Amino acid sequence: MRLKDKVGIVTGGAGGIGRGIALAMAKEGAHIAIVDINEENGQKVLEEINGHTEGMLFIKDISKRENVEDIVEKVVEKFGRLDILVNNAHASKQAPFAETTMDMFDLSFNTGFYPTFNFMQVAYPELKKTKGKVINFASGAGINGQPTQASYAAAKEAIRGITRVAANEWGADDINVNLISPIALTEGVKQWRENFPELYDETINKIPMKRMGDPEKDIGRIAVFLASEDSDYITGQTIMSDGGSTKL
């Protein structure tokens, strides 16, 4: 119970990596508010969380700052504190670089980068009180320049940039700000496998462990570590939870 009575927000928590993180943290004693746009799946994950601790569900468009403010306010109102912020939500469309459009960039930044920035800024006063933890998400798509993922890679690298800035600024407040760069078998990855089977096979062959990670066991446990006191002297880092694909 490394996170007993801690309170966290996990965006994109209704499935995939977000669900894995929410459940891993709940099993360690944290109360978790999940944020998503998929109400049906969100209710299912909320029930799973409530089987361990107490959760909340927000069906909100987090591209709007006022919704971010409302979520943070309601979580603190219910639980009295905020210790953990996990900015996992992100949507994008893949296309060859020459065919990438501004609409694709708008989708990626409005669902990934700007919500991450807004949640960090809005949550900062509460995280300062609890000496909290921020967990953002990077991607090998940006670090290595994955083909067909220009808009996604750009937003992920922008998130890495502001994470390092916040780590430098908020270190004096004892707030840890880190990134996970995962490879995990999610619904989105399964769809990517169908659309780009050759790239998928190429990706698997480059993973030394020859498999995709499990959202809860492989990625969620890293998030638990970063949210716990065990990571108190780690900040501004990109943790590669990718089976050894990228070695920084």
Score class of each variant (00 low, 15 high):
125 P>T: 11
106 D>I: 13
82 L>F: 04
104 M>L: 09
215 P>E: 02
133 K>S: 15
101 T>G: 09
185 L>W: 14
141 A>C: 13
244 G>E: 08
141 A>V: 10
51 G>V: 02
64 K>H: 09
100 T>Q: 05
15 G>T: 10
187 E>S: 08
239 I>L: 15
147 P>E: 12
237 Q>R: 14
15 G>W: 03
106 D>V: 13
158 A>N: 02
186 T>Y: 07
2 R>Y: 08
167 A>T: 04
34 I>C: 02
60 K>Q: 13
97 F>P: 00
172 A>R: 14
207 I>W: 05
128 K>Q: 13
231 S>T: 11
230 D>K: 10
210 K>Y: 03
234 I>K: 02
118 N>K: 06
36 D>Q: 02
201 D>I: 00
247 K>I: 15
65 R>W: 00
248 L>D: 11
43 Q>E: 14
174 D>N: 14
121 Q>M: 10
152 Y>C: 12
236 G>S: 12
213 G>Q: 01
178 N>C: 07
16 G>C: 06
199 L>T: 04
96 P>V: 13
164 R>C: 03
89 A>Y: 06
172 A>P: 00
130 T>C: 05
233 Y>S: 13
114 Y>T: 14
228 S>V: 07
73 E>Y: 09
179 L>N: 15
237 Q>K: 14
187 E>I: 01
92 S>M: 09
99 E>A: 13
12 G>H: 08
136 N>F: 08
50 N>T: 00
190 K>I: 14
130 T>E: 09
117 F>V: 15
159 I>K: 05
247 K>R: 15
232 D>C: 02
80 G>D: 07
179 L>S: 03
10 V>S: 01
197 P>V: 07
17 I>A: 09
135 I>H: 07
71 I>A: 02
75 V>G: 08
184 A>R: 06
215 P>F: 08
150 A>W: 02
108 S>P: 12
165 V>C: 11
67 N>T: 06
135 I>W: 09
90 H>V: 13
58 F>D: 03
243 G>I: 00
36 D>P: 04
26 A>L: 04
180 I>H: 10
97 F>L: 14
173 D>Q: 11
79 F>K: 04
136 N>S: 14
111 T>F: 02
44 K>P: 03
198 E>N: 10
156 K>R: 14
209 M>A: 05
220 G>Q: 04
122 V>T: 15
25 M>D: 08
196 F>P: 03
136 N>K: 09
207 I>F: 01
30 A>D: 09
41 N>I: 00
43 Q>Y: 00
33 A>F: 08
46 L>W: 00
103 D>K: 15
121 Q>V: 04
83 D>L: 01
56 M>R: 13
241 S>P: 02
208 P>W: 01
248 L>G: 11
219 I>S: 04
161 G>W: 07
239 I>K: 12
65 R>D: 00
56 M>W: 07
36 D>G: 06
75 V>N: 08
236 G>A: 11
169 E>K: 11
26 A>W: 00
189 V>Q: 11
105 F>L: 11
48 E>G: 13
115 P>Q: 12
70 D>S: 15
86 V>T: 03
113 F>D: 06
109 F>E: 01
146 Q>Y: 14
144 N>Y: 10
188 G>P: 12
11 T>N: 03
76 V>T: 06
124 Y>L: 11
222 I>L: 15
